[in-house]
Computed example of a mutant assay.
Amino acid sequence: MEGGTLSEMYKATQKLLIRTKDGLARLEVLEFSSSSSSSSSMPSSSYNGGDKNYDEVSVLVSTDMAQIQSICSEMDRLWRSIGSQGQRGLWKRKVEQVSEEVDSLKRSLDKQLMRRHVRMQAAQERTELLQRANGDTDHVLRIFDDEAQAMQSARNSSKVLDEAYDTAVAILSKYAEQKDRLKRAQRKALDVMNTLGLSGTVLKLIERRHRVDKWIAYGGMIAVIVVVYMFWRWIH
């Protein structure tokens, strides 16, 4: 359309837009309909040849869209040179309207092509899965057996871990009980010593022994926790 007037270019874009919309509709039919009667029900146009498949029609639609965009670029250059402000504003709106419409159609085509790609990929994966299942049933059964064994192993590991955790809690509880008994015994001993009037040196020795016993108890707790954690890491 180089060298044409704005009116001629605008008419050309309108024809191309109509044909592009018809092409998109044709793609819908080719994608979702398997009967030839549905294909022949479309209006007559350059897209409706019986020998044209989906890929051919999509290429034609894309080509028309590219042509419309090219014409719009030329029209955008021409309307800027119009002297009348009113005419310039009118053609500016027309060119923008055509550009927006072709952009919308292009987005529709992209979405349709993406949907088709996803459906074709899913169908191919289903076919390959069925072929593998029909050709190697034993292999499929082995996969299920391996999965079942893995799940059983996970359940057994979880059970062992729970038992180890319960044992560790019981051991820590015993340490706590022993600590309470030591505290009570210490208080009784201090009361007796105070009553007997023992020296401050003896009391300090007893307090130092109490601190040592306390750190021994804490060390035992930490050791049990470390052992349980290492066992849990080992079984996993």
Rank of each mutant, 00 (worst) to 15 (best):
I216L: 10
E28R: 03
V98E: 08
D138I: 15
L190R: 06
I235C: 00
L130A: 11
R211S: 13
D76Y: 14
K174I: 15
Q149M: 10
M221T: 02
F32S: 09
M75R: 01
E207N: 05
I235V: 12
G4A: 14
G50I: 15
T201P: 02
V61G: 01
Q131D: 04
V226M: 06
D22G: 11
L24Y: 14
W234N: 00
V228H: 01
S38P: 04
R184D: 15
G86E: 15
I171Y: 04
K111G: 08
K52E: 06
I235G: 00
F32Y: 12
E96K: 02
A164C: 11
Q14K: 04
D110M: 03
T201E: 04
G89E: 07
A12V: 08
L78G: 01
N48Y: 12
K214R: 07
Y10F: 15
V98M: 08
E128M: 13
A176S: 12
D162S: 02
R126C: 10
L78V: 09
R80S: 13
G220I: 03
V202N: 03
M114W: 15
D138Y: 12
D166L: 04
I82A: 01
E2D: 08
Y175R: 02
H117G: 01
G135P: 01
V169N: 02
H117I: 05
T13I: 15
D213M: 14
E163H: 03
Q97D: 14
I216G: 03
W232Q: 00
E100G: 09
R132G: 12
Q85C: 02
Q186E: 06
E31K: 05
G86Q: 13
Q124P: 02
K92F: 15
V98H: 04
Q14G: 05
T201N: 03
M221V: 09
N194H: 09
N194C: 09
R208P: 02
D162E: 04
S199H: 10
W79Y: 14
H236S: 05
R119E: 13
I82V: 05
R132Q: 11
R209L: 12
G220C: 08
V98W: 06
A189F: 11
T201H: 07
D103K: 08
L16M: 12
S81V: 14
S7M: 06
T195S: 09
S36Q: 10
R26F: 05
G135V: 07
K92L: 11
S70W: 14
D51E: 12
K179G: 14
I71S: 00
Q112I: 06
Y229G: 00
L113D: 04
R155K: 02
V169I: 14
E56Y: 11
Y229P: 00
T127R: 08
I71F: 09
E147K: 07
A25P: 00
M42V: 11
M230E: 10
W215D: 04
S58Q: 08
S45C: 07
A122P: 00
Q112W: 08
K111H: 13
S199I: 13
